[in-house]
Computed example of a mutant assay.
Amino acid sequence: MLTPDQWVLDESEGSVPLAKWQKTIDVMARVFNAPAGFIVQYAPEGFQVVISSGQASNPYDAGVTVPQDTNLFCKKVVEQQELLYVPDASTDPYWNTNPEVSDDGFCSYLGLPVKWPTGEPFGTICVMDFNATNYQKDYVDLVSELRDLIEADLKILSRYQMISNLAMTDELTGLYNRRGFYSVAQQYIALAKRSKLSLGLLYMDMDGLKRVNDV
């Protein structure tokens, strides 16, 4: 099950709608006529680009991870949990140590926080430009609407995982039931075949449980 301390790019079941998110960010970047747009995830290890707009001008690919202590625009958004719009970073000394500004040449940033269904910070959705900008309210509203779509997808994913977990585990013990065992076993068998590894199965038969089960 996907949790806030896990990178969504490491999720192996393919339930995260990455292709949909990619289209969303590509459209956002085109509407803004911006060289880069992103969905960035926050985790204890730092900040990871989940989705990166597809222009050749974009210096960051999906999967790039930046340490948590780096002075980033997205870090500020996660810390404050509110909109951050920097029309021209060159006029604010605070951003001089931001590698996006000092190394990559970005000048403008517009980003909003994205949250997990639990309310914990997921990360950000943002658009960046090498030139100073003057975005009006309609542009901010557009990013806000796109952010809401991402959060809605995370809620759907969370509910799906909850229902799936209920269907495959025993309510009392939390252990896999028959359906869960076969589902997980099939995944491991497929992985073993691809990796040419051996699998082993250990099982135990415990006596005297009828009295416990009948309680």
Score class of each variant (00 low, 15 high):
M1N: 09
M1Y: 10
Q6D: 15
Q6N: 15
W7G: 05
L9V: 00
L9C: 05
D10Q: 12
V16S: 06
K20P: 15
T24P: 09
T24A: 10
D26A: 01
D26C: 05
M28E: 08
M28L: 14
M28S: 04
M28P: 09
M28K: 08
R30V: 07
F32K: 04
F32D: 05
F38A: 02
V40F: 08
F47K: 01
V49G: 14
V50T: 05
V50A: 07
S53A: 04
S53W: 00
G54D: 09
Q55A: 10
A56F: 11
A56W: 10
S57R: 15
N58C: 09
N58V: 14
Y60S: 12
G63H: 07
V64P: 15
V66P: 15
D69I: 11
D69P: 13
N71Y: 05
N71R: 10
N71K: 09
K75P: 14
K76E: 15
K76Y: 11
V78Q: 04
E79Q: 09
E82V: 03
V86K: 03
P87S: 01
S90Y: 08
T91N: 04
P93H: 03
Y94V: 06
Y94R: 14
W95E: 00
N96D: 14
P99E: 01
E100Q: 13
E100Y: 13
S102E: 06
G105C: 01
S108D: 05
S108V: 01
Y109P: 02
Y109S: 00
L112S: 06
V114H: 02
K115S: 14
P117V: 02
G119A: 10
T124M: 10
T124V: 02
C126W: 03
V127P: 04
F130C: 07
A132I: 03
A132R: 07
K137A: 11
Y139F: 13
V143T: 04
E145G: 08
E145D: 12
L146D: 01
L146M: 13
L146W: 04
I150H: 03
I150T: 04
E151S: 05
E151C: 00
D153E: 04
D153K: 03
L154V: 02
I156F: 15
I156T: 14
L157K: 03
I163D: 06
A167C: 06
M168P: 11
D170E: 01
E171C: 07
E171W: 00
G174H: 01
G174A: 00
L175N: 04
R178P: 01
Y182G: 07
V184K: 13
Q186C: 08
Q186W: 12
I189Q: 03
A190R: 00
L191I: 04
K193I: 06
K196N: 09
L199R: 03
Y203M: 12
M204T: 08
M206D: 09
M206I: 12
M206N: 10
D207M: 08
K210I: 03
K210F: 08
N213T: 07
D214H: 00
D214C: 02
